[in-house]
């Protein structure tokens, strides 16, 4: 069995954590070749070659792959797919964009958000916002899957795979990149952070999110948000944690002013320790919290920040 793993690339850099977690899942399936596609990605390809368990890296360095557009990336992967039993990627926004396209071009189903590998054909994945875990056995010749990074440990360093150039597969020009609006941040990335501090509708405004950010900065944490906080404009879309946002499983998750809707829990209930700060003692978030504090967050969060 041979696995083609599509590395997550941000700009020209390897997203090491997401890629290394997908490598952990893929290693159980066979020999792992990592495809790094992008523009000016020599360094990223070298970094992928150092992940333990990677046997080969294919580097597709071409302007067509600079912005992760699904159509040229899918054509590239399909051009390389022969000989691989599995095509795997971490469940990032870019992989969720491209992998179903790749699967359809190969006339196979995609298996999204895999949380467990049972055997080479059989996988576990959450459905209904994590309210049920389905075990599915694929009948397809090639298995195309995205793996949920929160469910796998990152593979370590220490690999020394060879790096080969892969021929680009052209660009039909179906879509074109216009611009990215990506806020630079010194905080850790949400899906790899050890600690996440999240705010919900209870935080009340974009300015008040400052007290959430202050606690996060004190702890070296990432900042998350509920859908209600994002919809209300208190927080940017990429902070959303949940069924249709990011899925996190940090050592510590602190939910402030979040009620605990099932769609939010779907994104954080595998965290090791959950703290909830909410002024409503009946809030459902307390049913999953290890430590619950019934309090006004405008008092409790600054106090917590000062006492840590």
């Amino acid at each position: 069995m041979a696995v083609l793993l599509i590395a997550e690339v941000n700009g020209a850099d390897l997203a090491l954590d997401a890629t290394a977690k997908a490598v952990s899942a893929a290693k159980a399936l066979g020999d792992v070749t990592v495809l790094v596609a992008g523009s000016g990605i020599g360094g990223a390809a070298d970094a992928a070659a150092k992940i333990a368990g990677v046997s080969k890296v294919l580097s597709a360095d071409d302007a067509a792959y600079a912005h992760g557009l699904a159509e040229p990336l899918a054509d590239l992967v399909v051009s390389l797919a022969g000989g691989y039993s599995h095509i795997v990627a971490p469940s990032t926004a870019s992989a969720k964009n491209a992998l179903p396209r790749i699967a359809a071009l190969l006339d196979v189903m995609v298996i999204s958000d895999v949380t467990g590998v049972v055997d080479a054909d059989t996988f576990e994945r959450p459905i209904y916002a994590g309210n049920a875990i389905q075990t599915v056995k694929s009948k397809d010749a090639t298995k195309v899957l995205t793996v949920r990074t929160a469910s796998f440990e990152a593979a370590g360093e220490g690999g020394s795979a060879s790096v080969e150039a892969a021929a680009a597969a052209g660009d039909k020009g179906l879509s074109a990149w216009v611009e990215d609006k990506v806020a630079a941040s010194d905080r850790p990335e949400l899906t790899s952070a050890k600690i996440v501090v999240s705010g919900g509708r209870g935080v009340g405004s974009e300015e008040s999110f400052g007290i959430i950010a202050a606690l996060a900065d004190k702890l070296g944490a990432a900042v998350g948000a509920s859908r209600a906080a994002v919809d209300s404009g208190f927080a940017p879309n990429d902070w959303q944690v949940g069924q249709t946002g990011k899925v996190v499983a940090p050592e510590l998750y602190i939910a402030c002013g979040i009620s605990g809707a099932i769609q939010h829990l779907a994104g954080m209930k595998d965290s090791k320790i959950i703290v909830a700060i909410n002024k409503d003692e009946e809030a459902p978030i307390f049913q999953v919290a290890d430590f619950g504090l019934v309090a006004d967050l405008f008092d409790a969060v600054p106090e917590l920040t000062s006492k840590l």
Partner: peptide, 20 residues
């Protein structure tokens, strides 16, 4: 279907901890 559903299970539960 291409994916045969072998089984559907409840997720691992999480019990409420304590209030501080």
């Amino acid at each position: 279907p291409r994916l045969e559903v072998v089984k559907t299970a409840e997720p691992a539960g999480r019990s409420a901890g304590i209030k501080v």
